[in-house]
């Protein structure tokens, strides 16, 4: 209990000490983790990619674009099940609500990466730039991995 109080107090104290704009939401970065691109047979020119995007700030932030020199274009899609049928719906942006994480995962939200400039195999690494509505860009290296069914079974 003391620890919790100490913690709360230090947050309070911290905010009194630093009320300036140096710690406003605009400067809190979203973080991207567990990003990967699924390896596919070489004849396939549309690949899927997945990532977890965490927004630690107090306001919602949207992922508005993803770009890469290794693909002609990258879109955000979501699978929509309509009874028997599945279709992919393009998302113009992906909102990450305040203090939450969006999990992109097989069968749900995913990146759609068009026309890789070279055939991609497992363990290849490509660089993606994620652009957010608060003006931040996050550049990350993403590994190509062979799809294992364990990768998605625990998400359902």
């Amino acid at each position: 209990m003391n620890k919790v109080n100490l913690y709360l107090f230090s947050i309070f104290f911290f905010q009194i000490l630093f009320p300036s704009s140096a710690f406003t939401d605009e400067n809190i970065k979203v973080s991207i983790s567990d990003a990967w691109i699924s390896e596919a047979p070489t004849i396939v020119s549309i690949l899927a990619g997945y990532a977890n995007i965490h927004n630690p700030s107090k306001t919602s932030i949207s992922l508005i674009a993803i770009s890469s020199q290794d693909f002609s274009k990258i879109e955000i899609h979501r699978n929509v099940f309509n009874g028997e049928m599945v279709s992919m719906e393009k998302q113009e942006s992906l909102e990450i609500p305040a203090k939450s994480t969006i999990l992109m995962s097989p069968g749900d939200f995913h990146l759609m990466l068009f026309n890789p400039s070279k055939p991609l195999r497992s363990n290849d690494i490509v660089t993606l730039v994620f652009s957010f509505s608060n003006g931040h860009n996050e550049t990350i290296d993403v590994k190509v991995k062979r799809r294992h069914t364990e990768d998605h079974s625990h998400h359902h």
Partner: peptide, 14 residues
């Protein structure tokens, strides 16, 4: 279809 990036390779892997 082969250019289906998500559901098809998931299903094929399973």
């Amino acid at each position: 279809y082969s250019h289906c990036p998500d559901i098809c390779p998931i299903t094929m892997s399973v």
